[in-house]
Design a protein around this nucleic acid. Structure first.
Lengths: 115, 115
DNA sequence: CCGCATCCAATAGGATACTG
DNA sequence: CAGTATCCTATTGGATGCGG
């Protein structure tokens, strides 16, 4: 396990950041945890419709390992597990927003090029 | 060719942005093109010491395809090729800086955890 | 000098079936 | 409900050697 690059492996802070959120689904997961208090495994899976449980599990575990999200297990039957942003994860939100602005602009310019 | 994900394939602007700079060496290349006016292929290769020419070429081509850098060929013998940021690439710099700040902080906290 | 061609290794991610 | 187990494919990046 722990095959994904540990952010602290490289001392370049920018690369470290990118490694944390570079996974295919990670920013989407982060995004869906912004608005609501917490989400359950099945909720996330429904929202990300095409993700497989194995992949979702792994992305969540990596985000947890990197302390961007917290996983809360309720010892019940049937099982209930909640995911929410940590303070560290929440501190990333403003940057996500800026990336969104930049990306929106970028995509618009791409469309203009093709017109 | 064109195996890497086109940023305009997905309509999520944040993912689009991440796709542009998510490559293993891309932010490093971008970073080295900030300060100086332009850099030649060999200069970049020396700076990134462990990168292979093939990999460097591909990263550069993808960045060029995404219009973050410009490639200028001087028809000379021996060949001379320069790389520099485009305006689009330069517009990304502030976000890179914020990622750097965030990442620096993140890495410091990681160190504290281990102490 | 600036690559490209060929081959290869590692990893990320997916399909499907099954379980505490 | 919230995952695991097993197998598989796709993509990324590297090693090495050659070419305009």
């Amino acid at each position: 396990m722990k095959q994904h690059v540990d952010a602290s492996d490289d001392r370049c802070p920018v690369e470290a950041s990118i490694n944390l959120i570079g996974g295919k689904w990670k920013i989407l997961i982060l995004y869906h945890l912004i608005s609501d208090k917490s989400k359950r495994f099945n909720e996330l899976q429904k929202t990300l419709s095409t993700i497989t449980p194995r992949t979702l599990t792994r992305q969540l575990r990596e985000l947890e390992e990197d302390r961007l999200i917290r996983r809360i297990i309720h010892p019940e039957v049937p099982p209930k597990v909640e995911y929410m942003l940590t303070d560290t994860g929440r501190s990333l939100v403003p940057i996500l927003m800026e990336l969104q602005n930049w990306g929106t602009n970028y995509l618009q310019n791409s469309d203009l090029d093709q017109a």
